[in-house]
Design a protein around this nucleic acid. Structure first.
Lengths: 342, 342
DNA sequence: CTTGGCACTCACGCTCAGCGAGTGCCAGTC
DNA sequence: GACTGGCACTCGCTGAGCGTGAGTGCCAAG
């Protein structure tokens, strides 16, 4: 009973603080929420909550502010994921349906997410490792130069220019194209690399060298994990609304946004499986970012999450709303990747 | 004589103000620069410069600050382009030489430019319009679905999935591939589009419909100017050093960085030909950005500039250094594009 | 034209008092 | 035992007042 009310008080404090950005006092609380008790009672509850470390007083004679621990409890037990409005759902579908390729999907997602949450959005490009090879194309530029085009199931295209040690005829190239595709098409990256590795031994001796060049280059393209480290960032302008503490909050975050590796760590650590995960303030790996929270989730076809997206904002953020937006966008993007490129 | 000294005073004011970020007074000036005259004389010069609108006093009893007009004079007549150090040149070459494709070139350039100038760097992706078609590839996915891959001279690859109204055989496809490439390869976008437009009338009647589908899709891909509107931005963390006036300077710029269209306008208006152009404060098209300057230049193979890059920073920035960095990076990127993809 | 001198201005930083939101505690009530 | 009204107390915020000093403009002399 009493315990329940205390939690209600905590929830009210979090909600009010997020809304007003100012320490919230007992009187304001009972006015804005119908708690059914007097300010004095709320004060008692607040004292208890403070003892337990859920809230904190910036100074005597000020209202209370949630601590990271308080936010944690709020996120874990006091709130569900806020349902998205119809308008928001429609915005998601219409915007994302218009995407023409993988890059476009990522760019649109980032934009969408930052607009929905009014926070900084981060979307990791889908990693290559779990995708499969759809097709390999050969374009002969000169007799000794071939451009390889590797098309993956995610819609990603890698290209490599190969300098061959010897001239190659169109027939040899056509043969090679057929063999390579037979070996690799439909296979996962790892399997395709293996299968391709056996090719040079299977072809006619005079084309073995050329085949080896091509296979090497393809293996390189497939193992190219540059994309793993690529992320798109959007909504940095929302940092402007951080208001105070430019130096302690905005600057470090701005710096982090430049370092994609840092972002990936931030997203990665926050993500387990495909459920929405929240990392609050000091819970994260970077002490400079102790006043920012991360709301992230994995996404990808079916239940094999193979990339991560999320938002970064002040600990004082709208968790239910952000979680809802992150989840909704992740789901929709997953579906698009699923449909477009199975 | 006197006129010369006045300009020397202006130059000294600009340099000191850029270095210290504080209004500079007459006494400090004669101490830091060997002007060979007394503070009183400098004061007279300052009064004259103020009358002419080159400098400005924030308030009585404060030092002087250059006006936009003052910076303009400084840039136009009082400074050359600072030569790059050997270390800087080496940094440019080694970093950019490691780039593997067009995207990578752009990303590296942005990073490089922001590090060299400690400002926000902006690099526009090379536009399609002046590039030529290198090759068109066809990949049959199902009997009625073909993926088109358009490879341009800039190294850019566009892909399009085409749903055909009817089934197509491999022979038809091979024939189409040959015809399309013969018509388009080596041609500029505009010419290629025209040549392709005539194709449906030249092929066998039964493949005319399919040809039309393909040609339409290719024309779409070629006229797709999405890339024209793409820019890469880097070094936003440098905004942190803007110091004061977060709301008046940083916030609007942060917002502008999100709007790539705005950035393009910013860069575009600042650029004529392939010489480095400087746009100072209010000279730009956006009044919100009246305390930021743009240093930009066109770049591209030979003398046909076909994209723009530059930096954006506070009007109080190191113009000679920025101009040097922008010019050096632009030249080097142009050379890379030239070599890699003629 | 330059210079030293001098009176003047005014932003900045400091202190200090008054205000008021908010608290903790206590005695009384249900 | 839990809740409530009352009350004294705390302390950050605000604004006024004041001294300081950097920097100026002007003037008379070199």
């Amino acid at each position: 009973m009493v315990e329940d009310r205390r939690l209600a008080v905590l929830r009210a404090i979090v909600e009010d603080y997020v809304a007003t950005e100012e320490p919230v006092g007992s009187k304001a609380l009972v006015e804005r929420h119908s708690l059914g008790v007097s300010p004095a009672t709320v004060r008692n509850d607040m004292a208890a909550l403070e003892d337990e470390g859920f809230i904190h007083q910036p100074h005597t004679s000020a209202g209370r502010v949630p601590t990271d621990k308080g936010y944690r409890l709020f996120v874990d037990r006091l709130t569900g994921v806020k349902p998205m409005s119809v308008a928001e759902r429609r915005a998601i579908t219409t915007l994302l349906d218009g995407a023409v390729d993988l890059d476009d999907v990522v760019r649109r997602s980032v934009r969408l997410l930052s607009q929905l949450t009014r926070q900084v959005a981060i979307v990791q490009y889908p990693t290559l490792s779990r995708s499969t090879v759809r097709h390999v194309e050969f374009v002969s530029l000169t007799p000794t130069r071939v451009m390889l085009i590797l098309i993956l199931s995610t819609g990603r295209v890698e290209q490599r220019l190969v300098e061959l040690g010897a001239e190659v005829t169109d027939e040899q190239l056509a043969d090679l194209r057929a063999r390579v595709n037979q070996a690799a098409a439909g296979e996962r990256i790892a399997d395709a690399t293996q299968a391709l590795g056996r090719l040079p031994d299977e072809v006619a001796p005079e084309t073995a060298a050329i085949t080896r060049d091509v296979v090497t280059s393809l293996a390189d393209a497939m193992s190219d994990h540059r994309n793993d480290e690529r992320v798109a960032v959007g909504g940095a302008a929302n940092l402007a609304r951080f208001g105070d503490n430019f130096d302690t909050a905005v600057r470090p975050l701005l710096e982090a946004l430049e370092e994609h590796v840092v972002l990936l760590k931030l997203l990665g650590e926050a993500t387990t499986g495909d459920s929405v995960t929240v990392r609050i303030g000091h819970e994260g790996p970077y002490s400079e970012l102790s006043s920012t929270s991360v709301v992230a989730t994995g996404y990808g076809p079916a239940d094999q999450a193979f990339a991560t997206l999320g938002v970064v904002g002040p600990t004082r953020m709208d968790y239910p709303g952000s979680m809802a937006a992150v989840r909704a966008v992740a789901r929709y993007v997953s579906r698009i990747l699923d449909e477009g490129h199975q």
